[in-house]
Design a protein around this nucleic acid. Structure first.
Lengths: 114, 114
DNA sequence: TTGATATTTCTAGAATCATGGAAACATCAT
DNA sequence: ATGATGTTTCCATGATTCTAGAAATATCAA
């Protein structure tokens, strides 16, 4: 992953509303959620939300698809995978032990359905 | 990890010079590097670099220690671990398969000494 | 076509962040 | 003390990002 893409992705998540929207879409994967519903759940005016969703799309973390008169946004799985991969590889440069979580990632996730 | 701390951390890394400095410090861990040397390696004026390093410190990703007349910055290992942990746990909410890299993290790192 | 609903684009103002010179501060040597 | 070196704080300027109302666009229903 290019470092400029990584910076895009980090910046995209480094904002309260965008992080919240992203979280909603993670939980709603792979179906996604229409823009309006996201806006009302986050209590953000539509133009503001649209601005933030566009930011996440630009960063490759989500994508959108028109569906009747609404637009459904959904997680783009590879986006976050690549971003996490960038961070861990970056950390690994010569020193794997420095920033990898103790256990394997998949194992950490076993109890996450709460 | 608090989401506000995560946002701090993401924002801290979402900048070219800061990400570069962070990378240097990852490689130089656990020894660290004096501020002046980081500045010259990145070709950034000292006041600007100082501003960025302070940002990374605030985010808990690095820390500093005076050493004679220079100040040595070093990776704070838990910082990046927590940040990566936040991202992966966030992704895992109910859907572990969505954003965990295929293999275990530690295994991904085996060939990273290049 | 007209109207209702969903979303985005336009726009301007506000807020935040980045930059780097000058000055201040800290440390050490003489 | 004085001076040299390394770093930070101060400050002003410029650049970017955020916000949300108003207007524009898209889709469907009657």
């Amino acid at each position: 992953m290019e470092t400029s893409s990584a910076i895009e992705g980090l910046a995209a998540l480094a904002h309260e509303s965008r992080l919240q929207a992203f979280r909603l879409l993670v939980r709603a994967a792979p179906n996604g959620i229409p823009a309006g519903e996201i806006a009302s759940q986050l209590d953000v005016p539509p133009p503001t939300l649209s601005f933030h969703l566009a930011h996440l799309v630009r960063a490759g973390l989500i994508d959108s698809q028109r569906e009747g008169r609404s637009v459904r946004y959904a997680l783009r799985v590879d986006g976050i995978r690549e971003l996490v991969g960038f961070l861990t590889e970056d950390c690994c440069q010569g020193r794997p032990e420095l920033c990898a979580p103790e256990g394997a990632l998949a194992q950490d996730c076993e109890g996450c359905d709460a």
